[in-house]
Design a protein around this nucleic acid. Structure first.
Lengths: 232, 232
DNA sequence: TTTTGTTTGCGTCATAATAACGCATACAGT
DNA sequence: ACTGTATGCGTTATTATGACGCAAACAAAA
């Protein structure tokens, strides 16, 4: 069935993805170097046009699989962008999703549509095509707000992780220093993680305890009142 | 220009509005009784198809003006809904916005497209056409979360309002009892409202002080940790 | 073996925030 | 003047928070 019952002309509908990754160092975003116009040879977010019978999440999967070689990823709808001139080809509405990925678990494969796929640390993004800079900005904003009161972010780590690793992740995401000991107390009090009883060996110093994410915690009963260190 | 550059067929794009109102009693939603199929004579959210050169907010304004006779309203994008069968006429994506209105300031006018327009208290909604029940559910969720840490909700009151009025509004929005005195303390400490120096006269009892919303407060420095009363 | 440098885990303490609740004042109506 | 009720202000015990000290654990160096 067509959508021609509407007396209006329909804009095109695209789905764009902000894929966040964390490599034990910085928070990064996955960008794609375009092989075709518009914005040929420029970096943009991975995206695709919505097919008529497709749900947003299916479009997301399609992008992740065919363009990036990723599957089974945390996805969340971010916002829909509607600037009339955001795409030089004409009117395109973009529904943006953001994804959280542990880069170690996946092998990036630049699909045939792209010259290259690469992780860019948030602090070091190239200039982006379309309005994708605004989309990234808004998704960072959302992620930073959300991680404080929702159990999210663990998708960026290994299944088993240490408290110092989680601590460093939070500092990277929030771009701030957090007192190590207060962070530990708040996380443990929240019961959002469970000790595995094992320790992560191999490090030069004291071996930290390993934890896993506690899926039994209800999102609504989770709230960290994380405050940056006052001292630089 | 058409959007035919895309090799895909485009779904229709609609904007639907969840208009919240508060009548000193309960939180209400504005519903529209449809004059035409589908869902003829049933209640739905006000909405319209997006015109090709139109921005979402412009569609919102158009709906508010032509269908409801409202202007200059607080609007915020809620979410985009994509269930393939949400509209029996075919594939229609809906971008939902929610609005906050003080019903006293406006005269409702059911446009020619509708049989009737009416406020429905949240606790007493009729069954809704399309997937509009889900849209309302999500927008209530959003409003309840947002009012706790963002200076929002004052749009539902008169320009000048009393603290007991604000207190009752919060109880209505959150659907819970809040300790009157603790609520007062937190609101005043937040500086989100400013005393006008005047009192609201006419009541049978002690005349409460009047306040106005303090627009100078930056949203990020506003946070109420409001807790329901433990005692019923 | 001992020492060194560093990280991890646990604990302390002063201060701030919070929930629960008491009480006098200001009204209009009686 | 009295009554009933809502408003405004205040108190207190408890909890949460920020800042920070310290010993144990580890690998590598001495």
């Amino acid at each position: 069935m067509t959508a021609a019952f509407s007396s209006y002309q329909n804009p095109s509908l695209a789905v764009d993805l902000v894929v966040f990754g964390y490599d034990k160092e910085a928070l990064s975003v996955l960008l794609l170097n375009r092989k075709e116009a518009p914005f040929k040879n420029q970096w943009t977010l991975p995206g695709a046009f919505l097919q008529l019978e497709e749900r947003f999440l299916e479009t997301c999967q399609r992008i992740l699989e065919t363009k990036l070689g990723l599957t089974n990823i945390y996805l969340e709808q971010l916002y829909s962008f509607d600037e009339p001139d955001r795409d030089p080809r004409g009117r395109v509405i973009s529904v943006a999703y953001f994804a959280l990925v542990n880069p170690e678990n996946y092998q990036l494969t630049a699909g045939k549509m792209a010259n290259d796929v690469k992780w860019f640390p948030l602090a070091d993004l190239p200039s982006l095509g379309f309005d994708h800079a605004a989309i990234v900005r808004k998704s960072v904003e959302r992620l930073r707000a959300k991680i404080l009161y929702h159990p999210v972010g663990f998708e960026l780590l290994d299944q088993d992780f240490t408290l110092p690793e989680l601590h460093h992740l939070f500092e990277a995401v929030l771009d701030t220093k957090l007192d190590r000991r207060n962070f530990r107390r708040k996380i443990l009090d929240s019961h959002i993680i469970l000790p595995t009883g094992q320790k992560k060996t191999g490090a030069q110093n004291r071996h930290p305890d390993l934890y896993i994410f506690n899926k039994a915690i209800h999102p609504n009963q989770f709230n960290l009142s994380i405050t940056p260190n006052s001292k630089a």
